[in-house]
Amino acid sequence: MADSLSAECTPLKEKYDTCFNAWFEGYLEPAVAASSSERGAYSKKKADEFQAKCGKVWEQYKECIQRAVKEKGLDKLLQQAREENPLTMPPPPPIVKPLKKNS
């Protein structure tokens, strides 16, 4: 697992990543398999479950990393990047499509 940019935050980051990964690995395959009529209910249930399982450690990690980001002077750069590219929606597909192989 990669370190946090701040050694102080690494233990919280590891706890949070472990929590997210465990949740995500249970989430993904049923989410792919869900029919469009099931999707809403499943997504809501799993979003709530993620919050319940990882919400607390996320708050602790977030507090730590936000402080570290400020100390590194990255907060202003991030703010500027967010204004230039909010990226609140998935981007359109890239221009270059993967080559189709004849296999």
């Binding site: 809501k44 799993k46 990393i65």
Partner: peptide, 15 residues
Amino acid sequence: VSVDVLDRSVDPKTG
């Protein structure tokens, strides 16, 4: 050398 999550959301409608 480092990777940090700054924000994460799970859309309760689209997943």
